[in-house]
Write a protein that binds this DNA or RNA. Structure first.
Lengths: 214, 214
DNA sequence: ATTTTTTTTGACCGATTGGAAAAATTCTAG
DNA sequence: CTAGAATTTTTCCAATCGGTCAAAAAAAAT
């Protein structure tokens, strides 16, 4: 009982690799059909292995889902954490929007998995939402409120401002099919994220009011 | 073969009622778990009847789901249809936002069902998206573009403007759990929709730039 | 009151679900 | 090479899935 000689060596090289393959496949499946709509067989096939083999690495469906959610929330909030008092408030917010939009472009499956979880009421996730997440948003809301008090930003509700950034950016991942269907083949190509970035820049900077005629 | 004496009387009073009960229950279930994640037993229990009894009114799971989707898309696009050239462009857009936000408040399940369908790629729905929906959006985009050309609205991408309205308003239905978790018990009460309406008014009207000091 | 139609129920079906057990295989260290 | 551990496959299971069917019950029509 001195050197803690328990079983501390469960991490082989092949284990790490296969676990990564499984999580990757599970992300594909879960992000489309949600937790309940996805099957282990589906994930196993996407991962190129048999179901019992998959269950050798993750002992249950939940055990695959949970780490995905944790990882995603962490990545997801990174851009918000980086918003600080360094530069111009408008530039900070603009930068936050841009980073969030890039994440919707580069990690759409992660966004959809998160959305799926929200839609079903985020069971077993609700704790983190109104502790960790709420704390972070509260902190950034105070930061934004400070900017407003200094007259460096129009006075509005900082919480709903953050919501609107989440909503507008994630929309391009979660409702991708709709976006591309509406834009059509010409406008809906890869350039749609650049168009979105330009539009959002203007929206959050100055809104829709026309410039006064000189 | 003269008077077409087929079976043209399948609509009894009790049939209409039970069908309504079933669709109501199905909306509850489908909006949470999506099509694949929902079970007929679940819907039957929510509707207060046995599974075979439910299948007496709708002969398959898809037959319950399809009419829900059709009905929802129709209701969902109504506010957009009503946007026309009657009054001030900014007032028209403001009114559209308000109506859309009210729908997220009053019909959150419908919004979530729609979101669920988008997340899984809208199979058997894609047709309508880039015919009916695209046509409507194209028409309204032209209307908006006209306003911009007349200098009555800031010049931006009208498609992404519409997307941003969809995103910001539906967010309060689809991510309701997150919104309430972040806002907390005090700010997250019934008043959150009024706060959202005020914020969105300002965002779309004039953005976040601070007013110039006099 | 009785016939006919509509509605509901109970029993059941094959396929799929999440998961267990154990044998068979492959890998790795000595 | 060979023992031991790690990995994979085969087989299997009880529960649940979407859905059928015939019989019972309830309404409606006569």
């Amino acid at each position: 009982m001195t050197t803690d000689a328990g079983p501390p060596r469960p991490v082989t090289r092949i284990q790490r690799e296969k676990q990564e393959v499984i999580l990757e496949a599970a992300l594909d499946v879960f992000s489309q059909f949600g937790f309940r709509g996805s099957t282990i067989d589906q994930i196993a096939e996407a991962a190129g292995m048999s179901k019992p083999n998959l269950l050798y690495y993750f002992k249950s469906k939940e055990d695959i889902h949970a780490p995905l959610l944790e990882r995603i929330l962490d990545i997801w909030l990174d851009p918000l954490r980086e918003m600080n008092d360094d530069g111009d408030p408008l530039a900070e917010i603009r930068s936050y929007i841009r980073r969030k939009l890039e994440m919707s472009r580069d990690f759409p499956r992660e966004s959809r998995l998160f959305a799926n979880e929200m839609l079903r009421g985020a069971p077993g996730f609700y704790e983190i939402l109104h502790t960790d997440l709420k704390d972070l948003v509260d902190e950034k809301a105070r930061l934004i409120k400070g900017w407003m008090a200094e007259g460096r930003l129009a006075v509005t509700d900082p919480y709903h401002l953050i919501f609107s950034i989440w909503a507008t950016t994630q929309h391009y991942a979660d409702f991708d099919i709709q976006v591309r269907a509406v834009l059509g083949p010409d406008r809906g190509g890869e350039g749609r994220f650049d168009d979105a970035a330009r539009f959002l820049d203007q929206l959050f900077l100055s809104g829709l009011s026309p410039k006064k005629k000189a």
